[in-house]
Each structure stands twice: as structure tokens, then as C-alpha cells.
């Protein structure tokens, strides 16, 4: 059967249907269980980081190499002749697309990946465009939830920390709204979930509630998605107060559901105490590793029309 994602661009999570998402997650699971080290043999993938991002770049490049493909590219826009000679992104993309079979890109400006896809003859994967989208982060989050919960439907999911500026939580909430989950939002007032996201959830009839502390809901959760609250946004007294309400430690996990998993897009600072790492609920490092499988799944589907899972 032909796959609907063959030669498509992956720009925004909103472009993907529930069927697309399920196909990507199944493919990621299959590649995690049965590696396919020759799938992209003779394929060249460009890794174009107009803005530096170590974790995302390494994850993408590992994904290409684990599938037997080759990587070309650059890790910071400022060092390229593209930036220094004032070439438009549109022209840069036309050239890169003529060399590679696909490319992934990060760019400091919102909309850069969408624009690139309009000038490229080969698939473009958005690795982050300014404050807008980072769909592969959402896919690895979804994959991790799917892997640990065996489903994405009807889960109780809490989002904690910076819900205002964190594009990760916005995209994940939007994607999970296709799966009828219950959301709990826990954030300092100054960093609450923006109204436009809440309006979208209202329009879709999604159940959500807002809470003052993690402990109010922790015992009924399937997934606890932590994010970093940036200390510099608060004065010291305020931050100490926030720390007690929005930080997680092992004692808080005493009565939680057995299937609970704590996730975090990383890097963490002190919102998850180190003593959580040794509990069976901590899953953030496996989550980061899952980024490689989620990105492998995308590459496999975009570049292989009749991708067959080995499982």
C-alpha cells in the first residue's frame, strides 16, 4: 500500500491527520524494534541549521545514519556563505534541494520551513522555525506516550511549568486533541496557557481544567509533562514560591498510577528533582532517545513509497 506521507513536507503538526500521526508512530515503533540500517542507502539528506540546536541536530543526523543514509549540511547559519553573502532563503533552498533527497532545517524566523517547502522539489522537515513550530518534538512526545501507554486515546495528561511561551506544550496539546484526552494545566499565572489555545480546545470540545499545584491532580494522571520555568522571568521570592508548586520530587510520586510517566522536553534545570530519575516513572531520557526513532520514521515514510515494517 502506498503511504500518504511519501514525498510530503513536515512543516506544522496541524497539517497531519490522526491517520498520518498513527502511521508515523507505528513506523517509529517498528524501527525501534527492528532497525533497518540500509533503508536510506545511497540517499543524501541535508541538515541545515540556520540557527544552532545541538540536541535536535544530533538526533536528526543519528536518525539518517541509523538508516544508512549520508548527511551533508551546516550547524549554524552565521558560518555559511548563504548568510554572509545575503542570499535569500528561497535561493539557498533551491540549491540545497538540488543536491539532496530531503532536508531538515532549523531557522530563527517563523514561517521559514513553510517558505522553504515552496521552493524545494524534495521533502522538507521543519526542525523548528523561530517561536512557531517544532513538529518532530511533538512526534517524539506522541511516540513516547504511545509507547508507554499503548494508546493515545482518553489519557489524563498534565502540562506543568511555562505553558505560555512553550511551543512544545502548545503543539502537543493540539495534536493530542485529536485523541480525546483530558488535560490539566498547571502554571504560574504569568505563564498560563494562552487564550488562543484554550479557545481551540473549547471549539473541539476537549476537557481541560486549570490547577494551582501538581499535587492537586498527580494521583489521577497517566502522563505528567513537565517544562522548564525560566528563573529569570521572576524575582527571587516569587521564584521560591513557584518552585514549591511547580517542581516535582520523588515524594510526590508515592500514590500515583502505576502507568504514570513523567516526560520533559529537556534540558531540565531544577523543575524535576534528581531523585525522580531513579523512580520507575521517569522517562525523559528515553523520550529524548525516542527522538531518533520518530525522526527515522519520518525519513522512512517521506523517502520510501511502499515502506514495509519488518515486525
Amino acid at each position: 500500500m502506498n503511504n500518504p506521507l511519501y514525498q510530503k513536507n513536515i512543516i506544522s503538526i496541524a497539517d497531519l491527520s490522526r491517520t498520518d500521526l498513527e502511521l508515523i508512530l507505528q513506523t517509529a515503533l517498528s524501527l525501534k524494534e527492528s532497525p533497518q540500517p540500509e533503508l536510506l542507502k545511497n540517499k543524501v539528506i541535508a541538515s541545515c541549521f540556520f540557527e544552532a540546536s545541538t540536541r535536535t541536530r544530533l538526533s536528526f543526523e543519528t536518525a539518517v545514519q541509523r538508516l544508512g543514509g549520508s548527511v551533508i549540511g551546516f550547524d549554524s547559519g552565521g558560518n555559511t556563505s548563504l548568510a554572509q553573502k545575503g542570499e535569500t532563503l528561497a535561493d539557498s533552498v533551491k540549491v540545497i534541494a538540488s543536491y539532496a533527497d530531503a532536508f531538515f532545517m532549523r531557522h530563527p524566523q517563523e514561517g521559514a520551513a513553510r517558505l522553504a517547502s515552496e521552493f524545494s522539489d524534495v521533502p522538507v522537515i521543519n526542525g523548528g522555525d523561530g517561536a512557531n513550530q517544532h513538529p518532530t518534538q511533538t512526534l517524539l512526545d506522541l511516540f513516547t506516550i504511545y509507547e508507554t501507554q499503548d494508546t493515545l486515546d482518553n489519557l489524563n495528561i498534565a502540562f506543568v511549568g511555562d505553558l505560555k511561551y512553550g511551543r512544545t506544550v502548545h503543539s502537543l496539546a493540539q495534536a493530542l486533541s485529536l485523541f480525546n484526552c483530558n488535560f490539566y494545566f498547571i502554571a504560574p499565572d504569568a505563564l498560563a496557557m494562552p487564550d488562543y489555545i484554550l479557545e481551540e480546545l473549547n471549539d473541539k470540545g476537549i476537557n481541560y481544567s486549570v490547577h494551582k499545584s501538581i499535587e492537586e491532580v498527580i494521583d489521577s494522571l497517566d502522563v505528567l509533562y513537565m517544562t522548564r520555568v525560566q528563573k529569570e522571568r521572576f524575582d527571587e521570592t516569587e521564584y521560591q514560591h513557584i518552585k514549591s508548586a511547580f517542581l516535582l520530587n520523588a515524594q510526590m510520586l508515592e500514590n500515583v498510577r502505576e502507568n504514570l510517566k513523567v516526560l520533559h522536553p529537556l534540558p531540565r534545570v531544577d523543575e524535576i528533582h534528581k531523585n525522580v530519575d531513579d523512580t520507575p516513572y521517569a522517562y525523559y531520557f528515553q523520550q529524548a532517545q525516542n527522538g531518533v526513532y520518530a525522526r527515522q520514521a519520518l525519513l522512512a515514510l517521506l523517502l520510501t513509497n511502499q515502506f514495509k515494517t519488518k515486525a
Binding site: 535569500t88 532563503l89 528561497a90 524566523q109 517563523e110 514561517g111 521559514a112 517558505l115 522555525d129 523561530g130
Partner: peptide, 12 residues
């Protein structure tokens, strides 16, 4: 209105 939108700098 978003000053960081790519549409300001490109031929689109």
C-alpha cells in the same frame, strides 16, 4: 504584523 515572520525578507 509579526516582525519575525519570514514573509518580510523573502520574495513571496
Amino acid at each position: 504584523p509579526n516582525s519575525n515572520c519570514i514573509s518580510h525578507n523573502e520574495p513571496v
